[in-house]
Amino acid sequence: MSVLPILTAAIAPGAALLCYFYLKDRYQPEPVSLVLRMFFFGVLLVFPIMVLQRALVLGLGLGEGSFLFSFLASSLPEEFFKWFLVYFIIYKHTSFDEPYDGIVYSVAVSLGFATLENVFYAFLHGSDFSFLMWRAFLPVSGHAMFGVIMGYHFGKAKFTAGGERKHLLYALLLPFFWHGTFDYILAVTKTYWIWFMVPLMVFLWVRSLLKVNRANAKSPLRMVTREEQVKI
């Protein structure tokens, strides 16, 4: 398989999911330039995280596929740095003006990371189309789900009175938990993973879509729209 088809197959899942969650913003879509910037920052995260993960594996002697590897070397650095980017770049930005915006930006960062990671894996297994489909269904989609969970709680932190610290903590801990669980299940169920991963992905998708609807329902812009409709 030539370079262009491999590259297209690797980028397409992340791009499609980003478009999907971007278009779910019902009331005031975010600036495309800012969403793409966060996606690009997510891409750049791959390199320092790879170095850190390698250092953790060598320094702590974590074996790939172990429980500690799944949570400490894989999930923790990835979700922490995604959280760090969203918090310090977007959380107090003027464009973050409704709860759903947290989901858009967190998903953008997560999918930026997942897309470059997918490109690397695609070039290693470029002739295996089934592998690329597996990557699209599981790791790329999984990163999107972790981004939804993170972004939902960023939105709750910013727009729920008295709950900021709690939801900022949830924005980190819940994606960390689900990401670690995801990786560990894949590691220990090499031959029968489908019996665990399909129910987990269905659960995460249903949970994420519910959070999308809840975030949109709590938008202050929704109330403005309703008032305008009443006046008309």
Score class of each variant (00 low, 15 high):
Pro29Asn: 10
Met150Cys: 13
Leu111Ala: 11
Tyr22Asn: 02
Ser2Ile: 09
Leu85Ile: 15
Leu68Asp: 04
Asn216Phe: 08
Thr160Gln: 06
Phe177Leu: 12
Phe88Lys: 11
Leu52Glu: 01
Ile103Trp: 09
Gly42Glu: 09
Glu164Tyr: 13
Tyr20Lys: 00
Gly14Glu: 03
Ile90Pro: 08
Arg54His: 12
Cys19Pro: 00
Glu64Leu: 01
Leu18Ala: 04
Leu76Asn: 03
Leu52Gln: 02
Pro199Val: 07
Phe21Arg: 00
Val51Asn: 02
Ile6Met: 10
Leu56Lys: 05
Leu173Val: 14
Leu58Gln: 10
Phe203Asp: 01
His167Met: 08
Val46Gln: 10
Phe203Arg: 03
Ser130His: 12
Ala15Asn: 05
Phe41Pro: 10
Leu210Pro: 03
Pro99Gly: 06
Lys190Cys: 05
Gly63Met: 09
Ile194Asn: 03
Ala10Leu: 02
Ile6Gln: 03
Arg226Leu: 14
Ala215Trp: 12
Ile149Leu: 13
Val198Arg: 03
Arg135Ser: 06
Gly180Tyr: 00
Val104Arg: 05
Leu169Arg: 15
Ile90Leu: 05
Ser106Lys: 08
Thr181Arg: 00
Leu174Tyr: 06
Ile149Cys: 03
Phe21Gln: 02
Pro220Cys: 04
Phe159Met: 10
Ser141Cys: 14
Tyr100Pro: 03
Pro99Asn: 02
Leu58Asn: 15
Tyr27Trp: 13
Leu44Thr: 00
Gln53Glu: 09
Phe113Val: 09
Ile232His: 05
Trp178Cys: 01
Lys190Arg: 13
Leu204Met: 12
Gln53Pro: 08
Ala122Tyr: 05
Glu64Ala: 01
Phe154Pro: 09
Phe21Asn: 01
Ala108Val: 15
Ser127Trp: 11
Gly180Gln: 01
Met50Gln: 13
Pro48Asn: 09
Pro175Leu: 00
Pro139Trp: 01
Tyr170Trp: 09
Ala55Phe: 07
Asp97Leu: 02
Pro199Ala: 03
His93Asp: 07
Leu7Pro: 06
Pro31Arg: 04
Pro77Arg: 12
Gly162His: 10
Leu173Gln: 05
Asp97His: 09
Leu76Ile: 15
Ala122His: 03
Arg165Phe: 09
Phe96Lys: 01
Leu18Tyr: 06
Phe176His: 02
Phe137Pro: 05
Leu4Asn: 07
Met150Gln: 15
Phe88Cys: 04
Glu30Gly: 08
Ala161Met: 10
Leu169Met: 09
Arg222Gln: 10
Phe71Asn: 00
Tyr105Ser: 02
Glu30Val: 11
Leu132Lys: 08
Lys218Met: 12
